[in-house]
Design a protein around this nucleic acid. Structure first.
Lengths: 230, 230
DNA sequence: CGAACGCTTGATGGCCATCAATCTCTGTGG
DNA sequence: CCACAGAGATTGATGGCCATCAAGCGTTCG
């Protein structure tokens, strides 16, 4: 029995259902064809219809929309183990752009392939859809962040949620996580200016709640931080 | 051939796919058992798991979450033809509360029933899921409203989207729609204070863009309004 | 070494929250 | 029929949060 270390996707789905070894094997095969992506080129453009979904195996990307005035709202970040364009494939609608943040590797899954697996392995389908639904629920949390929290709470809450997500795939814990985002990314996600994000991060750092620095988010006091963010 | 006037749900799904008469009949039967709901009582509470979904046949409800500090963020409004708790049924997660805004009538659809119809009539399933996905996409638009538009644009854009949705089910057009919302509802949806919503509505009225008054939203100049909202 | 990018900090001002008061409208009961 | 209560709408005054403009610093990379 060789038991290679689980991929992020396998770790994530394991949180929803115990997977049979055959199911794990299917997942491993899907991700075997992982290939690098040219940084800076959009995978999926606004409104475009795609025949494939992608499993993100390495790196981070952002999903965003651009308004007329040119400013950008980041709807969500995707991290290893997340699907890209799953809804586009299943429902033939794609409504936002995707841009790599780091060097990225993805495994392409054709629409036909995905549907075939879904019908032959319904338990796997349920786990995938459950995970996808959980990610969509995070968009709702994000909405509440922006609508009803001030800048500091919003920032703290957002980074905590991100940490929770990364923990699910083994890329973070209660002490923090590696984070390739710039303060500009955070600003575009939180609906703030980059200048103000900087001030808020300083405040959080001076209150020993969290430290956002050079590719790393450190939770200086996890419990107090949770209390602060709500 | 009797051809009763189509229900909101039938009108909405017809926008996505041509339905066979057998499929229309299934929809009609589902909604036949419509019953009134006691106003003021929540249908689904935060975190609760339900075994049923509901089709909203009459009236409006809101989906919202309440923060620690007690203020409320309305995530979305549901109007006739919309499903309530569809995701809860399919995925066993329910993440927000639902509250009636007007007198409401719903048809209950059990989880088993829904799944049975989905497997026997895949085209119908596709139409339902497509419509549901479209509604989820509106949450993303809503996120951008709150994150990147000022109060006036935000309000205008939101009411325009609502008008578009209602037109789909025959309850509105380019001149406007009947609207039971109070300014407090709008404030909770837009992440603004009720006082400021009032000022913004006055501004929009004085610029002859739209009029929000006593149960009716009137688009005074649809094209200019679209240009204004983006 | 220069340019680009990201981070940091100060000064100014505007958008919108908050507090407060008044007004209208509706429904209710004496 | 009128008094009253309550919800919703409206308007003014004040202030705070955060955007914007501007300048300077550190690091990376061609």
């Amino acid at each position: 029995m060789h038991q290679p270390s689980p991929t992020p996707l396998e770790r994530k789905l394991s949180a929803f259902a115990v997977l049979a070894s055959e199911e794990r094997e299917i997942l491993t095969n899907l991700q075997g064809r992982s290939r690098p992506i040219v940084v800076g080129r959009d995978l999926v453009h606004q409104g475009q219809e795609k025949q494939s979904a992608y499993i993100l195996t390495k790196g981070w990307v952002s999903s965003y929309k651009v308004s007329m005035e040119g400013d950008r709202q980041i709807v969500d970040f995707q991290v290893p183990g997340d699907f890209l364009g799953l809804r586009s494939v299943l429902l033939k609608t794609s409504d936002h752009s995707i841009e790599p943040i780091t060097h990225v590797e993805v495994a392409e899954v054709s629409s036909a392939e995905l549907l075939s697996i879904f019908s032959s392995h319904p338990r796997l389908a349920a786990a995938v859809l459950w995970a996808a639904s959980r990610d969509e629920a995070m968009v709702v949390e994000h909405l509440i962040d922006i609508g009803r929290r001030n800048a500091a709470e919003r920032t703290a809450h957002f980074l905590l949620e991100l940490g929770t997500r990364l923990s699910l795939v083994g890329l973070g814990d209660r002490t923090g996580f590696e984070c390739p985002l710039t303060q500009y990314h955070l600003a575009d996600a939180l609906g703030l200016s980059a200048v103000h994000v900087n001030r808020v991060l300083r405040q959080l750092r001076e209150e020993h709640l969290l430290t956002f620095r050079r590719n790393r988010v450190t939770f200086d006091a996890y419990d107090r931080l949770v209390a602060f963010a709500g």
